[in-house]
Design a protein around this nucleic acid. Structure first.
Lengths: 136, 136
DNA sequence: CAGCAATCTGGACTTTGTCTAATATTCGGA
DNA sequence: TCCGAATATTAGACAAAGTCCAGATTGCTG
């Protein structure tokens, strides 16, 4: 699988998203890098040559991708949200100093002993974040 | 143990924090409630009668408490940070709709199979957040 | 009481994100 | 292809959380 803009259009359609020019660019930014990006970073990437996509559209689009399950939101930094093109179950490793965020495959990780949920509640997701720091 | 202002002064001293009037009030707000509070909420509580403590002081103080290990930071909501007076190991249950945050005792929870850390890294903490939603 | 360090303060500022009303684009049907 | 309706995009004003700074206060200590 490679992340051409054409393939992005297909990906968007398959998620019931109208593939406009801006949405394709934003999807391309996220998926071709396979990295966690903040809204700011997405905007910077998409507008490298000459400003093409507005701030409002970047935020709208990321929110749309989120609703449609195309990306996942990662909340680790109090000052900004990251968007993760990897939606398969996995956890995160966060380097506190540098702000670097990487994936931990969920395959071998097991979480046991969680108490039952309060009645009338469903789990929307379990976020496991390992915060690390460089030994100094 | 009860959370009189006098006891707060002792708590602060034992954590190497100079117990000023404002710091005692802020500690009292957090510890007498034993709840997760945002900076905003702390400010509202402390300034109920007549404004007594400035925004800058609330933020400075919470940051200081954090450094001295008196409280813990909980990052679950992209728009604000919560401060948790419970520093014993535990996890969190977050109700997405209402924003309600509660503790999950860590005693019976076990997390296994985490990969080894990258060289030169130490764990600063492991945050486990169960995001739940009301069935509708 | 004077001097000094630590603390507190208002308010300006920054950053992330939201909102709105006008404009532009896209899509499906004839 | 052309048209109208629905959908997207935009600039820029706005909001909220948090930071920063320089001056004022506090409270020691000699």
């Amino acid at each position: 699988m490679d992340y051409t803009r054409d393939n992005m259009a297909g990906l968007l359609r398959s998620h019931d998203i109208n593939p406009t020019h801006q949405r394709i660019e934003i999807a391309h930014a996220l998926f071709s890098r396979q990295e966690h990006l903040s809204a700011d970073q997405v905007m910077a990437i998409v507008n490298t040559r000459h400003s093409e996509t507005s701030k409002a559209t970047v935020y709208n689009t990321l929110k749309l991708f989120l609703e449609k399950g195309l990306v996942r939101e990662v909340i680790v930094d109090p000052s900004k949200v990251f968007f993760d093109p990897n939606t398969s179950p996995h956890h995160h490793l966060y380097e506190v100093d540098s702000g670097k965020l990487s994936d931990i495959d969920a395959e071998h990780v097991e979480i046991s002993g969680l108490p039952p949920l309060p009645a009338g509640m469903v789990t929307e997701g379990i976020d496991l974040i390992v915060r690390v720091r460089r030994t100094s």
